[in-house]
Computed example of a mutant assay.
Amino acid sequence: MRRALGFLLAGGAVALSAWWLWPAAAPLAPSMPAKAAGGAFAPSQQGTQPDGQVGVAASGALRVDAELRRLFDYYLAALGEHSLPAIRAELQRYLQGKLKAAALSQAMNLFDRYVAYRQSLAGMTVAAQTDLAQRLGRAQAVRRQYFNEAELAGLFGDEDRYDDFTAKRLAILANPSLSAAEKQRQVAELERQLPPALRAAREEPIKPLTLAQAESALQKNGGDEQALYSLRAGMVGQAAADRLSELDKEQASWQARVADFKRDRAAIASNSQLTAQQQQQAVAQLQAQRFNAQEALRLPAFAASP
């Protein structure tokens, strides 16, 4: 679910800028597509598996959700390498092993309407100066020509909610009558109104930065190792906190080894009884004794003079 939300967050409003990449409407009669080397449907999909999932509800009807849309988009990503009829035939072949006749028919009908919807977007002309809310509104109006309410909620519900959030956030940030503090307050309120799953998906990419800032604040206030662990466990979970603790120990050990090396290297450099060549040889021998080949690649960045 998190991966699907990440896909929608990355592709929602951005997709509206690429409508013209879609070909004009083409017949969707089945044809047998040729396989790429290695059994992949298209060369660009070599080494991948179909993205998304397909399933049925308890009633046996097709489950219409963002996972199904991701599956459609996975096959449609082969446009340019295969024709639409070939893509449709390959998708149908894939679904035949997963769905019974009624659900399969429903899936292919939905796919045909999804393609028609995307082609309709490709034919739209939207002025560059049109704001995001207007562009999203036009796209949503086009969708209603092809899908019923349940299908709209399943295929686009999360994307619509996030796009609405994005449009409102941009409007707040662009409002010259608001102070920086008021903008921050209103954006934070928008964040709180997002569904938990969408809010978590939005926060995921900035978690490392947020955690680093919280750790820095804790250390400035004299927080000890246990307080640091509790902070991490609360923000990223116990398993991640355990891994971070191990990384801290490894980093501390590495820094101690580098400090020892720098001290001994300095002693060699100050030994007036050795020639410059002998000093270089002694430092090289010291490095070889203390660090393996992989560690030696990292060493210059940590052991630069002084």
Rank of each mutant, 00 (worst) to 15 (best):
K207T: 08
S83N: 03
M1A: 15
L21V: 10
E151M: 01
E246C: 08
W19Y: 15
A13W: 06
Y117I: 04
Q145T: 10
V258R: 01
T166H: 10
Q289C: 07
S230H: 11
R257T: 12
R161D: 14
Q255C: 09
Q251R: 13
Q53R: 11
G60C: 02
P43C: 00
P30K: 00
G38K: 02
R265C: 02
E182V: 03
A217V: 06
A42V: 02
L247I: 14
A29Y: 11
A86M: 06
R113A: 00
Q294P: 09
G6L: 13
Q255I: 14
Q193T: 00
A259T: 01
F165C: 11
A10Q: 10
T130F: 13
A304K: 11
E250C: 12
M235E: 01
A266I: 09
A101W: 07
D264K: 10
P205Y: 14
S59G: 05
I172N: 01
Q106L: 02
P208I: 07
V54R: 02
Q277I: 12
A127K: 14
Q145E: 06
R290Q: 12
L170M: 12
A167K: 00
F147C: 01
E250Q: 15
D164K: 13
Q287I: 05
A58L: 11
T125H: 12
A267N: 12
E81T: 09
N175S: 06
D112H: 03
N292V: 04
R135Q: 05
A58C: 10
L95K: 01
R263P: 00
N271D: 08
P85N: 02
I87C: 01
L68W: 04
A61T: 10
L286T: 06
L62D: 04
A29N: 13
P205N: 13
F7W: 15
E67C: 04
P43E: 04
P176R: 03
S179M: 00
D160E: 13
T125F: 07
R3A: 13
S216K: 14
E159V: 11
R113H: 01
S272T: 15
A133E: 08
A127F: 12
F7P: 09
